[in-house]
Nucleic acid binder design. Structure first.
Length: 427
RNA sequence: GGAGAGGUGGCCGAGUGGUCGAAGGCGCAGCACUGGAAAUGCUGUAACGGGGUAACUCGUUCGAGGGUUCGAAUCCCUCCCUCUCCGCCA
């Protein structure tokens, strides 16, 4: 959520930054109008409240001082109090309604792109930052797509998963299931060693949590919702993990907070019909190890860089070629001010595909979720900066391994760092 | 799901109709003492919103939302959550 005060004080600047996401997509004027009305009413209402409070105190004092509670003096004050109450009874609901309208509009506004986020209309204008591991590009010219080799090896079952659930689900068998577990453990072990504290949050999460991180109210169609409860299947661990601290005031000395979490993630993938219909790239359920940081605002850019490095380290250890791109203003997510995507080489597609997204949301999520910190001796509180990144998407990592490590005999070599986990050198 | 008890400031905890934004403690900050520190003493210390350059000032907030009253942390209603006991269950 954007700071209403900043919108009010710099409407042109805010509008200009929002326009970088797409001209004409967001209009601040309705918010400014409602805000002005709201403040007029607030000024008026608080004056009446002040008098009303004064009367209340006065009556108490007079009665204690020996005035007749049924006498004329007290009755006159009560009368005035009642008149004020009638007026307040009209103003209060108006003010409340205006505040709710402003809140609703603010919740629908995306984050402001960071100044340094490259300006662009869509993904075509993202900027490549660097590539890594071209020496590991596979030389085998006859690589089968991962879903074919997976089914051949009997470790991926798509049609049986469809029978149990529906399209875009997979069943992992034998070494497939073991590889998934190995990847999860390997990723967690590495990130724990890098300083992240592992958490296993609830996978069913409430509406307030999804609102706190920005998935709601705008993107309700992206998540699975339980019919009889106010609970949704988590689309990413970012949501439960960031919301662990919702409405908390953290001591500054406790920052930064680093968490890693393995969770299954559930996404409806509405609107992506026809894209990546085969394989592990786009499923309704997938595993992911997520990194979350809550940090002091002064450190957030440094922390963003190191978060990216932590995600990259996994691919380097697995010796999978990848590139890092910086998303342009037209492609960054709703809550993000700046995002780096890591894309891994997928030989069958002859291209790099997203395997991690590392975003700095600045105070956008913290303001929505009420995550603040207090510095000793300083008055008031500040919002933390919340950052998140995948470290990494497990299914896509498996896809990359099944292809990049595919041997000419149709078997798949196990990456060296995974061998201790899998207790196997080849699948 | 049934019965009972509870939810108060960064934390703990007192407070059953007015002088309560709320005692006391912890924590934190400043000062004194000290070579320095600890201990001790004194002082200060809620958040959010409006107005004001500022000093400051007005309002809101005691789980959430309604209600009673001139006046609610305190009384009433609904909901959420926590704890104890019972039931069910991996």
């Amino acid at each position: 959520m954007l700071d209403l005060k900043i919108i009010r004080e710099n409407p042109d600047k805010v509008q200009q930054l929002l326009d970088r996401r797409g001209v004409g997509k967001y209009d601040l004027q309705p918010i400014l109008d409602l805000d002005q009305k709201q403040r007029e009413i607030e000024t008026n209402r608080s004056q009446l409240s002040a008098r009303s409070n004064e009367i209340g105190k006065l009556i108490g004092q007079k009665i204690r001082g020996g005035s007749d509670p049924k006498g004329e003096e007290i009755s006159a004050l009560k009368e005035e109090g009642n008149e004020l109450k009638t007026k307040l009874g009209e103003l209060e609901p108006q003010e409340k309604e205006l505040k709710a309208q402003i809140e609703n509009l603010l919740l629908e506004l995306p984050n402001l792109p960071q100044e340094s986020t490259p300006i662009g209309k869509n993904e075509e204008e993202n900027v490549e930052i660097h590539r890594w591991g071209e020496e590991y590009l596979p030389s085998n010219p006859n690589i089968l797509p991962h879903w074919e080799i997976g089914e051949k090896l009997g470790i991926l079952e798509f049609s049986r998963a469809v029978k149990v659930a529906q399209a875009r689900f997979v069943n992992l068998v034998g070494a497939g299931a073991a590889l998934e577990r190995a990847l999860i453990n390997f990723m967690l072990d590495r990130q724990i060693a890098a300083g992240y504290v592992e958490v296993m949050p609830p996978l069913l999460i409430n509406t307030e949590s999804l609102t706190g991180t920005g998935q709601l109210p705008k993107f309700a169609e992206e998540s699975f919702k339980c019919q009889d409860d106010d609970l949704w299947l988590t689309p990413t661990a970012e949501v439960p993990v960031v919301n662990l601290y919702r409405n908390e005031v953290i001591e500054a000395a406790k920052l930064p907070i680093y968490h890693c979490a393995y969770t299954p993630c559930f996404r409806r993938e509405a609107g992506s019909y026809g894209k990546d219909t085969r394989g592990l790239i786009r499923l309704h359920q997938f595993s992911k190890v997520e990194l979350v940081k809550l940090v002091h605002p002064d450190r957030s850019e440094t922390e963003h860089q190191s978060l990216l490095k932590n995600a990259e380290a996994i691919l380097q250890a697995l010796q999978l070629p990848y590139r890092v791109i910086e998303l342009c203003t037209g492609d960054i997510g709703f809550s993000a001010a700046k995002t780096y995507d890591i894309e891994v080489w997928i030989p069958s597609a002859n291209t790099y595909r997203e395997i991690s997204s590392c975003s700095n949301t600045f105070d956008f999520q913290a303001r929505r979720a009420g995550i603040r910190f207090k510095e000793a001796g300083k008055k008031g509180t500040q919002f933390v900066h919340a950052l998140n990144g995948s470290g990494l998407a497990v299914g896509r990592t498996m896809a990359a391994i099944l292809e990049n490590y595919q041997q000419t005999d149709g078997r798949v070599k196990v990456p060296e760092v995974l061998q201790p986990y899998l207790k196997k050198e080849i699948i």
